[in-house]
């Protein structure tokens, strides 16, 4: 079947099998290998991307279901050469080691901060509880997200709910 998906602001039309998983569409058909898969069963969250405005586990969504929708992946966090505060936070606070879970963690964290710009540590832990990291014990991931929260509050006290999905400008 033919599907058209707007990924990171660019429209992609491809002929795919209806059974094709969204994660494979992104990785294999579009070459966006930043999103990973880790578990097959929607437990680990390495595959989290945004479907429209919502973080989803793309190993458990068919590419066909994204037809006509927008997808945002880790490759779109940095815009106009400017890193997202979440990306900055992860490197400032050593929020990653092997880097495999990182894209999914960051996509969920970005969505959290768009909805709740000032989360508590407990809220960050809860928001990330569907995602497994085997390297950090989560300690520095939580710090990274809180760092990003503080940074964007500093940078823009009146920060609106979230970045435009289709816009390519700085978030």
């Amino acid at each position: 079947m033919r599907i058209t998906v707007i990924v990171n602001g660019a429209s992609h039309t491809r002929e795919v099998e209806p059974r094709l998983l969204l994660i494979h569409f992104l990785r294999d058909d579009l070459g966006l290998t930043g999103s990973h898969w880790g578990c097959d069963t929607s437990n680990c969250g390495a595959c989290v991307v945004w479907l429209d405005e919502t973080p989803v586990k793309s190993c458990t969504v068919l590419a066909a279901m994204a037809d006509g929708h927008r997808v945002r992946t880790v490759e779109d966090l940095e815009r106009g050469g400017v890193l997202d505060p979440v990306q900055q936070g992860f490197t400032e606070c050593h929020g990653l080691q092997c880097g495999f879970c990182t894209p999914g963690m960051m996509m969920t964290a970005r969505a959290l901060l768009d909805r709740n710009p000032n989360p508590t540590a407990a809220q960050v832990r809860e928001a990330l509880s569907g995602q497994i990291c085997r390297c950090t014990g989560y300690e520095n991931i939580v710090r990274s997200v809180l760092w990003a929260s503080a940074r964007q509050a500093e940078a823009d006290p009146a920060r609106p709910g979230g970045p435009a999905l289709d816009g390519r400008g700085p978030a």
Binding site: L32, T33, G34, S35, H36, T73, V74, E75, L77, E78, L83, Q87, F90, T91, E92, H94, L96, G99, F100, T102, P103, M106
Partner: peptide, 15 residues
Amino acid sequence: ARKEDARFIRGAGTF
């Protein structure tokens, strides 16, 4: 700060 991070935070690692 880790040199490795630049690629991983952009989803640009090569696994």
